[in-house]
Computed example of a mutant assay.
Amino acid sequence: MATIRKRGEGQYHVQIRKRGYPTQTKTFSKEADARRWATIIESEMERGVFVSRTEAEATLVAEVLQRYAVEVLPTKRSAQSDKSRIKTLTEAFGAYRLASLNSSQVAQFRDQRLKTVSPQSVIHEINLLNRVLKAATMEWGIALPGGLPTTQVRKPTKPRGRDRRVSREEIEKILNTTESPELKTIIVLAVETGMRRGELASLTWEDIDLKKQTAHLAKTKTDVPRTVPLSKVAVKTLQQFSKGREGQVFSLQAESISQAFERACEKHRANIADLRFHDLRHEATSRLFEKGLNVMEVAAITGHKTLDMLKRYTHLRAEDLAKKLG
């Protein structure tokens, strides 16, 4: 039962004791608020749905965001990009108590952010907030009475995937334009294998077996190691590039690969518009299907975890499909 005591001027102290639950106490400035809170808590205890709000009411969202940044983020490969997202989330929600965070606030954040950044960026931010709140509840023992507000909000519609195909002529033009043997090798491997830029940047010569025509990727975006088969073109390119080399295959880091590729495509060089390095992965995936490989075979090479994602990366030419129809 709830006990309400008046303490001093305008202070109402509530204490609730019930077998099977920790004692709950709270102080209010109005008696009506004290009685309302006591009624809610007692009702939840009677129905067996009570969750203690004490720690959630005492903890700022900024505190769990910072703890996640210190304890969890360093273990993630997305740490660099998530650091800026942590800052954005702290500015938006940092002053709130965990217990007061609700889906309406998250929805308002979504709508405001969509005015300045892409839907995919907003999805990343909401997903990160969801991971932080899950860590708080599952790992740090901070119960959220209303559950995770991030799961009660409609996420923005994902933008339509790019369907840019890269012609063989464009690839040849870029290869002939750049004077960097390293970038040339990276481009050929990207088109022949569908490797992500981060996977290419992390490759070591110990990962590569030119006799078996394979490259082992211990670290991937999906956290699932895989071994990628190398085409004869890929093997020949690596053989030409491998003379006297050991350790890391490439000196360029992931971001530098994109920058070097974009420079090679500039107007005063290859003069190829609207082309990104990641488009090479789309092109590689499409070519694998055009070679006759089935879905499971292509997924084993590219590392796509779902059919939906694989479909987003596949853009088959209508004229090539027409030839198969006869």
Rank of each mutant, 00 (worst) to 15 (best):
Q253T: 08
R312Y: 01
T220H: 03
L129A: 12
V166R: 01
P22T: 11
K76S: 08
G247I: 03
L275Q: 09
K243W: 13
Y96T: 06
R168Y: 15
K221H: 05
E192A: 07
R196V: 11
A234I: 01
E297K: 12
A38V: 03
E91L: 15
R197K: 13
N127H: 13
A264C: 06
S121V: 12
T150G: 00
S81Q: 12
I208E: 04
V14K: 06
V188Q: 04
S121R: 02
G194P: 06
L189D: 02
D274C: 06
E44D: 11
Q213D: 05
V228Y: 01
L203R: 00
A299V: 09
Q248G: 02
A69N: 14
E71W: 09
V191W: 02
Q240T: 10
V228G: 01
Y96F: 13
L280V: 10
V49Q: 10
R113M: 15
K6Q: 11
L200T: 00
S52R: 13
T90M: 10
R113P: 05
G292C: 07
L280D: 03
H216D: 01
G326F: 12
V166N: 01
V70W: 08
A318Y: 13
L133W: 08
Q112S: 14
A34G: 06
K115F: 05
F261V: 03
E172L: 07
A190E: 03
K26G: 06
E169P: 06
T25E: 14
Q253E: 06
V191K: 00
I301M: 14
L217F: 04
S103N: 05
K311W: 04
L238K: 00
V249P: 00
E319N: 12
I41T: 09
P159I: 14
L310R: 03
L307D: 02
Y313L: 05
K221G: 04
K83G: 15
A201L: 02
G8R: 08
Q253A: 09
L307M: 06
S231D: 10
F93M: 03
E290S: 07
P181F: 08
E71Y: 12
R287Y: 06
E266M: 14
M45Y: 11
S103C: 00
P22Y: 14
K305I: 00
T302R: 00
R226W: 04
A299M: 13
E283H: 00
W205C: 01
R35F: 04
D209E: 09
L210V: 05
L114K: 13
T27P: 05
A264P: 00
A218S: 10
L101C: 10
R36Y: 03
S100A: 09
S100H: 04
E169T: 12
W140I: 05
P74I: 07
S180R: 02
G146P: 02
I86S: 03
L316M: 11
V14G: 03
V122R: 01
T314W: 01
R113T: 13
K323E: 14
A218H: 09
K158Y: 15
K6D: 09
D82L: 06
S242Y: 03
S52C: 14
A143Y: 08
F277M: 08
H13R: 11
L73H: 04
K211D: 14
K6A: 08
Q80W: 07
R47Q: 15
R113V: 10
E63W: 07
K305P: 03
